[in-house]
Design a protein around this nucleic acid. Sequence first.
DNA 1: ATGAAAGCGCTAACAG
DNA 2: CTGTTAGCGCTTTCAT
Lengths: 352, 352
Amino acid sequence: MPSTPQRNAGQIGRATLSDVAREADVSLATVDRVLNKRPGVHARSIAQVHGAVERLNYRPDPAAARLARPHPHRVSFLLPSGTNTFVEMLREQIAGSDGWMEDHRVSAQTHAVDVFEPQRLARRILSLRGQCDTAVVMALDHPLVQAAIDELVAQGIGVITLVSDVPRSRRQHFVGIDNMAAGRTAGTLVGRFSGGVKGEVGVIVGSLSLRDHAERSLGFSQVMAAEYQGLKVLPPMEGKDDPKLTQQLSARLLAAHPKLVALYSVGAGNRGISATLKASGRAGKIVFVGHELTPAARADLLDGTMAAVINQDAGHEIRSALRLAIARLTREPVHADQERIRIDIYLKDNLP
Amino acid sequence: MPSTPQRNAGQIGRATLSDVAREADVSLATVDRVLNKRPGVHARSIAQVHGAVERLNYRPDPAAARLARPHPHRVSFLLPSGTNTFVEMLREQIAGSDGWMEDHRVSAQTHAVDVFEPQRLARRILSLRGQCDTAVVMALDHPLVQAAIDELVAQGIGVITLVSDVPRSRRQHFVGIDNMAAGRTAGTLVGRFSGGVKGEVGVIVGSLSLRDHAERSLGFSQVMAAEYQGLKVLPPMEGKDDPKLTQQLSARLLAAHPKLVALYSVGAGNRGISATLKASGRAGKIVFVGHELTPAARADLLDGTMAAVINQDAGHEIRSALRLAIARLTREPVHADQERIRIDIYLKDNLP
DNA sequence: ATGAAAGCGCTAACAG
DNA sequence: CTGTTAGCGCTTTCAT
């Protein structure tokens, strides 16, 4: 029988680092080295520590760790440049979390990048080496980008993809929604809201080369084909997430398809579509479903121009990314349930 | 100009309690007394401390506070006894939060009460005096209950109402959804999903004397009356949240109304309705909308028996109640955005 | 390769 | 009414 632990023989309170040190018969510092995977510890000591941790059921105390750490965790956000309202909302949420971040010893920096250019994006990602402990990236899924992410991870930097995933990379986590499922949700909404009428359904994406847009569009088409045969989905048009362009495209769509029953906007630039619908006098008659609860979308929901909005909660995403970032460095367990980003459906009646 | 602060003249780092003590020219202990509103401090000192806090922009460090506190915050949950699946989910979430609670020095206890008996409930609430720092109560809105809550608050115990509010009481917070809005949401869902057909809509509540059920029912009727005149809402039937009873009621409903287009279940006991619908062969033909994403509801959504489920996230509610409970004792600011419970809409496609 | 010791910012006895 | 002091559990120099 090893040395008698003075505490926690039977879970009186919670085992502390000192308990572990005593049980493992090494010093506090050594335990710390093992737990934080720092080099220069004898294999024997490592084993002893792990044994003790196991036996005492040790769990680090995040508050104590946070208090003792002199330097903050640096997390860098890489967000698309441009005027996308949803990205703007993400920015606001980051800014709004500063109090929380201060409390948790994390400091954030936000960088804007042109996401549509893989080379530039990859270079920007690589430039984060040594600049931060965790990188949170809203990225385009491209081999160059994937390689850059993997390189960062190899350097010991945590990488979290946000909103749009790079699934084959070695990123630590993806924070965002299942876009296939989101597209299917749009499909069911459009199908049921159209009430058995026969006709055509328009789809406007930002760009089919964006993974999330392609996935949503696919999920949507699947449901429509399988469950709403009376509705014919027209080939998607690319609006580049630009209100000007989406306005033109939707105007053309309405002109060409007088029997248009519904319109699914996969990406951004919904203001353009909304304008067209209102101008044509068919707002509220055509079932218009889109993504992201921006102030404009909220207004469109309230006046009946939009039938439903599918949303991912920007605040939740930012908080989740932040929690995951520090969880890695403090080896805290993550509560998967809390980190799952929901596919929110908003009607005019359940707006937050 | 008062004594020169050695730090934080210009926000170098963050002001600490010692900074405040120095600036206010009192001791650490006095600052603590003031901030924690403990008695026995001269008015002058109080003013000095408040001034210093203001000037230095002091914010307490929750991690340090949590670390220093020897006793855990005791929070008591008062939940309805019985076999309601949603309440069961709340229980599980409480149990599942134990790690988090340990990390934050809070200990929880859960008590079961017969919520339908105001006297008993009020007595149970009062019995919490001195037993805990915060009480989280899923209560019935009744004068006796309200008085009991107010009494607890007067004793310095924080009270949080959960799921069902007691709005005229002095409770610190309500954690739950806007049930009127939830009812309206159900209305829009039923209205649009019915696709312009004319007919009758059944409503089954648990009990109209439950505030949340009454509110949902009201919101539902409002929307139906205002926006879907082709659909006639039948008078609500009381199913006591009991599957046996709801099964009987719904069977009677189907028999009496062959033209029944939709069914809105306001409370619990949806399994009974589902069984009736399946037995009658009209599952999927009648638009069935209900509340709370239980395992049974999830299955009904997937097989098409239910068209939509309106949910309040049990995990979110428990975490929120817990955060609010400790926020009061550590005077941390609450991030209203994060604590707002959403009215979730689930279709078969966006299940978590 | 390992240990001793000094805090992080706050709370709570315990003395005045 | 007010101040002094000893920790909470961990991280991190600095010695050894």
